[in-house]
Design a binder for these strands. Structure first.
Lengths: 114, 114
DNA sequence: CCGTTAGTTCCGAAATCCCGAACTATGGGA
DNA sequence: TCCCATAGTTCGGGATTTCGGAACTAACGG
């Protein structure tokens, strides 16, 4: 299991962020990480809304979010701890993440759901 | 050729907008329409930056933008006139479009290129 | 060492995207 | 009215991406 790759913020591209968050499941996961500050496991998030996400898909979703520069993941014992890179991303692309999260929140009534 | 479909703003979903703009070519086209107020033809935009976009792809890009609720297209004689629905979209999802356009602009140095 | 839990990788099926070729629609002559 | 040119759309199918089950790896607890 190779050491998880996290791009430097200067290498983060807007299209990767938009692509990552254009999937409602991923947006929901990211919103959860944002609001919780940190999500302690992939499994903790496996049932977003009413849909169960298979764990291979979930693993892939986290990978996409990570490689888009949106989250930082680190192994802690047997589980993964994910936290958002909001401050860094917001410094690079001001207002982008909050506008996206707000858009999902206003559309769905109370946040994106998987 | 069926009458072009434009979604009502209340039916516009954030994921469609993010998906539409997660493609740099489309983002560039949209930025151009935004800044010009109106782009008079698909062909007028066929060479974004240094890449030539084939016209079937271009037609599809416009369709994606249109169905995402980002632009309004109307036939004027033999050509198509496209203008942005910025005001409507911004009313529904405040700050979203400008944050996205700014993100591309700051990353690319001077706006998204196709 | 074995079992359990948490997550990753592999790989084939399904869905999407891309773009050349053929087609449709509109306007301008003659 | 017919023909041509221009502008854009649709079709088709190969390339790419995504999805998810099954098998695998890693860490911890007896």
């Amino acid at each position: 299991m190779r050491p998880l790759f996290h791009p430097a913020m200067e290498d983060v591209q807007p299209e990767a962020i938009l692509h990552a968050l254009s999937d409602p499941s991923r947006a929901a996961i990211f919103a959860k990480i944002m609001s919780a500050g940190c999500v302690e496991a992939c499994a903790a998030v496996s049932a977003m809304g009413d849909r169960v996400i298979p764990k291979s898909s979930l693993s892939n979703h986290f990978k996409v979010l990570r490689e888009a520069g949106l989250i930082r993941s680190e192994r802690h014992g047997v589980e993964m701890r994910n936290h958002s890179r909001w401050a860094e991303v917001d410094a690079r692309f001001p207002g982008l993440l909050s506008a996206i999260i707000n858009a999902y929140a206003s559309e769905g009534g109370n946040g994106p759901r998987g």
